[in-house]
Computed example of a mutant assay.
Amino acid sequence: MAATQVIRSEWTKIRSVASTVWTLSLAVVVTLALGILISALSARDFDTMSDRDRLSFDPTFISFAGMGLGQLAMIVFGVLVVSNEYSTGMIRTSRAAVPQRATFLTGKLAVATALALVVGLVTSFATFFLGQAMLGSHSASIGDPGVLRAVFGGGLYMMLIALFSMGVAVMLRSPMLSLGILMPFFFLISNILGNVPATKKVGRYLPDQAGSKIMRVVTPVDDSTPYGPWGGLGIMALWVAAAVIGGYVLLRRRDA
């Protein structure tokens, strides 16, 4: 099967499965809603902040407060795109139609990644503008130094989260096992390692903590991270590459 046919087939699969459509919609809604709420609360509490907190006040990053929950939906999307076929047994049909495993995997990941990027960018720009509207006089402008990079980076961050999840799902093949590893990894292990002084230097090299650096414009007063916004996104990209390569290697070594 030609590459264009594989891409068309994968697009049909994604949009015909209600769960994948709903998870992307949920990523948008949750990110926007929480971003608006936190921005409004931050504007209300600004006058009571300490001088130290005001120095670290980052209106752009505050508007991305919903990204934490939004990435949960992106993780689910990435896992479902890959593992739905394994759980239903349709993977055998897909593999028979596209025997070239590199073509099969590339087509699937390309379509899902492009969709995640579009949704991520729309969500990132929307939550920024809505969040700044809530912040009022404390807001940032899209033309301010570093702001456009942060907003565009927010979309890239969400895309990379989805792609990383796809790579893990290809390796594990099971939706329950994939989610059972990814959810604790991002929402428990990463937070613990990133906030405990003894492990903080290790935690900042995890994909979510490194990648989220791209969304910051103002560096916190106590931040000693040895890399910048693009360096952090680069570290995240290396994690994603490792997951995708690992998935491809295992896909080649085993039967569908």
Rank of each mutant, 00 (worst) to 15 (best):
R173E: 08
R173I: 13
R173D: 02
S174G: 07
S174A: 12
P175W: 06
L177I: 14
L177H: 05
L177M: 11
S178A: 11
S178Y: 05
L179P: 00
L179R: 02
G180P: 02
G180L: 12
I181M: 11
L182A: 09
L182W: 07
L182H: 07
M183W: 01
P184A: 08
P184H: 08
P184Y: 07
P184S: 09
F185Q: 05
F186Y: 10
F187Y: 14
I189G: 08
S190V: 09
S190A: 15
S190R: 09
I192P: 01
L193G: 12
G194T: 13
G194D: 14
G194R: 04
N195E: 12
V196I: 15
V196F: 11
V196Y: 08
V196M: 14
V196N: 12
V196T: 13
P197M: 14
P197A: 12
P197K: 12
A198P: 02
T199I: 15
K200H: 15
K200T: 10
K200Y: 13
K201Y: 13
K201Q: 15
V202I: 15
V202E: 07
V202L: 15
G203A: 03
R204P: 03
Y205I: 09
Y205A: 10
L206P: 00
P207R: 08
D208P: 06
Q209T: 15
Q209W: 07
A210I: 05
A210E: 01
G211S: 07
G211I: 08
S212T: 02
K213T: 08
I214T: 07
M215Q: 06
M215R: 06
M215C: 00
M215N: 04
V217P: 01
V217D: 00
V218T: 05
P220M: 00
P220S: 02
P220T: 06
V221W: 09
V221D: 14
V221G: 11
D222W: 01
D222Y: 04
D222P: 06
D222M: 12
D223H: 13
D223C: 13
D223W: 10
D223I: 06
D223G: 11
S224H: 11
S224D: 13
T225M: 05
P226A: 10
Y227W: 10
Y227T: 03
Y227V: 04
G228F: 10
G228L: 13
P229D: 12
W230M: 13
W230Q: 00
G231Y: 11
G231C: 11
G231M: 13
L233V: 10
L233H: 05
L233M: 14
L233F: 08
G234W: 08
G234L: 08
G234P: 00
I235G: 06
M236G: 01
M236W: 02
A237F: 01
A237E: 09
A237M: 06
L238V: 15
L238E: 03
L238G: 14
L238R: 06
W239C: 00
A241H: 04
A241D: 06
V244M: 02
I245E: 12
G246E: 03
G246N: 05
G246W: 00
G247W: 05
G247M: 08
G247Q: 02
Y248F: 14
Y248A: 14
Y248Q: 03
Y248M: 07
V249H: 04
V249I: 14
V249Y: 07
V249C: 09
L250T: 13
